Amino acid sequence: MDLFRQSIEQPENLLPQDGQAYYHGILIPVDDADHYFAALMDNIQWEHDQALIYGKRIITRRKVAWYGDQPFAYTYSKTTKHALAWTKELLALKSMIEHHLDETFNSCLLNLYHNGDEGMAWHSDEEKDLKKHGTIASLSLGAERKFAFRHKHRQHQQKQQTQSLILEHGSLLVMAGTTQTFWQHRLPPTKKISTPRINLTFRNSV
């Protein structure tokens, strides 16, 4: 048993104002986390992500997948996806998180980062296809990666308005309230990581 792999019973808000972000620590024991990681690598319909930047369509090395209760449309970076039907592993993970948080979710966006060269630039998850101020539960599997927040209006005024943490294998980060309105987040690239990471963000689509 790894005594350092523990959940956090009463997580504190990571953000000093204008939002709520709680790191719950390890939600899934390492053996179970390994099982789900392998199953998702094999069974998810991964596709390279696309974005329209300055009128040019860019294909990313990072892969994504979109699942839900029904074929919800989800549009970001001027690209629209329609949700696929849940797999048994996704339903099990969704149920686990819903029980832990006493919340319900109807959709999930998955990201596959093959190594540390792949990351995510500063952005907010406030697309019109998502419930406004809805809770987003972010589950991490695989390589540990740094994750950062910055305030949209204060990052140039106060250095402490940037917050960062390390997301562990099997851990849960929850963003709620007005976080997406006032804060951006990112997964910075790093040369130190050579193994893959899967991130599942459980959401509520409208």
Rank of each mutant, 00 (worst) to 15 (best):
Q155W: 13
T190S: 15
S7Y: 00
Q180E: 09
R62V: 01
L90D: 02
S95P: 01
L52M: 14
N115R: 05
K63W: 01
G119M: 05
A21V: 09
T179Y: 03
N115P: 05
L15I: 08
R154F: 10
A73R: 15
R186T: 12
Q20N: 09
E103S: 11
S138P: 02
W46F: 06
F105V: 08
A92M: 08
S95R: 11
M1T: 13
L139N: 00
W122C: 11
R5G: 04
H151E: 03
E9I: 13
I58S: 04
T135I: 13
K152Y: 03
F147V: 06
L200D: 03
K63C: 09
G25Q: 03
K81Y: 15
L14F: 07
E98H: 04
V64M: 13
F202I: 05
N106W: 03
L141F: 05
R57I: 15
F202E: 00
S95Q: 14
I44T: 14
P196V: 05
I58L: 14
A83P: 04
L167V: 09
S171C: 05
L167S: 02
L172N: 09
K191M: 09
R57L: 15
G170E: 01
Q160N: 15
D2V: 10
K81F: 12
I8E: 05
N106R: 10
T75M: 12
Q184T: 09
Q157S: 13
Q155H: 15
Y22K: 14
L165W: 02
H48T: 07
S140K: 02
G134Y: 00
E9L: 12
S171H: 00
A73D: 15
D102K: 14
A73F: 06
K56I: 12
G55R: 07
E126V: 11
L84E: 10
A176R: 13
D18F: 08
H156C: 08
Q50V: 08
E168N: 13
K131N: 04
T75L: 12
L167D: 01
T181G: 02
A65W: 02
A38P: 00
K146S: 12
L40T: 04
S205R: 00
K88F: 10
I44H: 00
L93A: 01
Y22V: 04
K132S: 14
L187F: 11
H82Y: 15
L91W: 02
Q45L: 12
D125A: 06
G170K: 02
A51K: 08
F37H: 08
T195D: 06
R197K: 04
Y113C: 03
H153W: 06
D102C: 09
H169P: 01
F72P: 06
F105M: 08
L91A: 09
H82C: 14
H185Y: 06
F4H: 11
Q158A: 13
Q184D: 14
W86A: 06
M175D: 10
A92I: 06
R186G: 06
T190N: 09
Q50C: 10
N13V: 07
H151C: 06
Q50P: 01
E9Y: 07
N43Y: 03
G177N: 15
K94G: 03
I28G: 00
S95F: 01
R150N: 08
T201A: 11
L130F: 06
L172E: 05
T79K: 11
D31E: 15
V30R: 10
A176Y: 07
M41F: 03
A33K: 00
